[in-house]
Write a protein that binds this DNA or RNA. Sequence first.
DNA 1: TATTGTTATACTCTATAACTATA
DNA 2: TATAGTTATAGAGTATAACAATA
Lengths: 153, 153
Amino acid sequence: MDGLVQLSFLVQGILTDAAGAYELSLQQARLLGVLRDREPGMAQLAGVLGLDKSSTTGLVARAERRGLVRRVAVDEDRRAVRVALSEHGRQLALTVAAEVERRLDEAVGGLTETNRKRLSQLASQVVHHHARSTGVDLGTGRPVAAPSQEPNR
Amino acid sequence: MDGLVQLSFLVQGILTDAAGAYELSLQQARLLGVLRDREPGMAQLAGVLGLDKSSTTGLVARAERRGLVRRVAVDEDRRAVRVALSEHGRQLALTVAAEVERRLDEAVGGLTETNRKRLSQLASQVVHHHARSTGVDLGTGRPVAAPSQEPNR
DNA sequence: TATTGTTATACTCTATAACTATA
DNA sequence: TATAGTTATAGAGTATAACAATA
């Protein structure tokens, strides 16, 4: 399974470079990706990202400072906030996703069409199996990423 | 190729957790892995890890402080050093590698034996294709990780 | 009391720029 | 001059522990 480890570093490198091309860190880009179809509270966001809530506070604070996200007050519970993409953030999320797609396609260019599909399908299978066996909610199932027990990412 | 992105986060999470079980950060564990069969200079090490040389100085300094690696003087060039695993570092590298193997096997447990092999083989294929097309030396081809143009990892 | 989120603090990791010591 | 490595500095990202406000 060694190739899998190397591949994970390769893909993370591609993500980092693609995000970096738009002055984003990997984590900031990941945040944008996660928020594309959610508006979670801080605690839920921490759960999805596999981070401690205090780490999430910082991540969101930096994103907010750059105008990528907004903290939206919740009427029913005055303790709570929801994190939402700003227009700029949403636009950037789309742009970066396209760039990732482009670079990823390039990276798997050495495979036949059949094998590309096979790889993609096997990857999804592993991810879903892991999500099921660890009981982690992947939500609508987008580029959500590493569900892990210990918040240690 | 979205599953591939999710899988990369999953694998990185597994690596982080496995390393964390031995009080190591992902980067420290990666350093140990890289040094398993090399004794590079700082500049070469930076190249392999895709980091700036100053980042490498810090990484090695922290590892050395914990007794995981040693800086070995080079006779022929009094500016240079080589970075080598200590006995403790070597032992830990083995232990962590075994732990990673165990957790990874578990993660792909949802696949049939055939599909596990297929996934592994496709992953290696992508990694090697990328290495060739970017002219990056993967050395002996172990868990070396993300060869990337811009040092940005 | 329990939950939501923030703050204070301390590390690791990273890069850029400037530096030292050799070649 | 060029190369090998370090230092100074700054910022992101992370966790733990303690806290405030609200439920």
